[in-house]
């Protein structure tokens, strides 16, 4: 962490803790993410990544600790308020609006972002059409904007998720296993898009990922969780060489192997 920052970092999590029935899923975890920085959160299965994510997203209220976004407290504020504070996210098990077309998915997100979602008149499908098309083009989906979201291939769903998350013009983007279930070529493409957009718009990114190639290729910094505790943090090369990390992954033996086993779709 760079010293002597006057402005607070984009995301500052301090002393986060959450226990489930006596099991400490997240135990005194602190870290930060700067604007424009790409940070990966990795760890063996059950390390507490998802819980950690939900704490930052506001979905869960931590037992202890605080989450600050640009100095503003969003601890346990709930996803809707976190969104308004500038947090966008994608889900591990992709969550898009199945009854809408691809474009309508993004338009809904745009309408919400622009405070028009409560407007009970006017055609929803005409709202921010151009912006929706631009976001979809950015996500590499220009050719499938009119498709029903329910019929998309899984890789496309993941890209749509990214477009939806970007529609809110977030300052912090949380991505939970953004490439899980995708073909290897698509994975790389998706991560490239996400990183490019983040760099261009100065968005901070925090993502979890099983695919270590993606992690080491794109992350500026890597946080390693094991049994709820942060055991390492630093540049990819540092982390790769950390004995603690190697020990944590030893039993797993899959440090550099992706697991793609999503049964959905």
């Amino acid at each position: 962490m760079t010293a002597a920052m006057n402005a607070p970092p984009l995301l500052a999590a301090t002393g986060l803790a959450k226990a489930w029935g006596g099991v400490r899923a997240v135990d005194d975890v602190s870290f930060s993410v700067a604007a424009g920085e790409i940070v990966a959160l990795i760890g063996p299965n059950g390390a507490g990544k998802s819980t950690c994510f939900n704490l930052i997203n506001g979905q869960l209220r931590p037992d202890a600790g605080r989450v600050l976004l640009s100095g503003r407290d969003i601890t346990g504020a709930g996803p809707a308020r976190a969104f308004r504070a500038g947090v966008g996210r994608t889900f591990q098990i992709a969550a898009t609006f199945a009854s809408m077309t691809v474009r309508e998915n993004v338009q809904t997100a745009l309408a919400a972002a622009r405070g028009q979602i409560m407007r009970p008149w006017g055609a929803g499908r005409n709202i921010a059409r151009d912006d929706a098309m631009r976001l979809l083009a950015l996500a590499g989906m220009a050719g499938m904007t009119e498709r029903p979201a329910a019929g998309l291939a899984y890789g496309d769903v993941k890209r749509l998720e990214l477009a939806i998350a970007l529609a809110g013009a977030p300052r912090l983007l949380l991505m939970d296993e953004p490439t899980a279930g995708m073909a290897p070529a698509d994975r790389a493409a998706l991560m490239r898009i996400a990183v490019a957009v983040a760099r261009a718009q100065n968005i901070g990114v925090l993502f979890t990922e099983h695919d270590m190639d993606a992690v080491f290729a794109h992350a500026d910094r890597i946080l390693v969780l094991d049994r709820g505790r942060l055991i390492a943090s630093g540049a990819p090369a540092e982390v790769r060489d950390s004995p603690a990390v190697r020990a944590a992954y030893l039993g797993d033996g899959v440090l550099f192997a992706a697991t793609a086993d999503d049964r959905r779709q």
Binding site: F97, A111, A112
Partner: peptide
């Protein structure tokens, strides 16, 4: 078919997703 209608349907289709875009 209004934006609000899309909000309603969005919350119906995927409550988590809707919440994460501020609906």
């Amino acid at each position: 078919f209004s934006p609000f209608g899309y909000g309603l349907r969005g919350a119906r289709d995927e409550a988590r997703r809707a919440a994460s875009i501020g609906v």
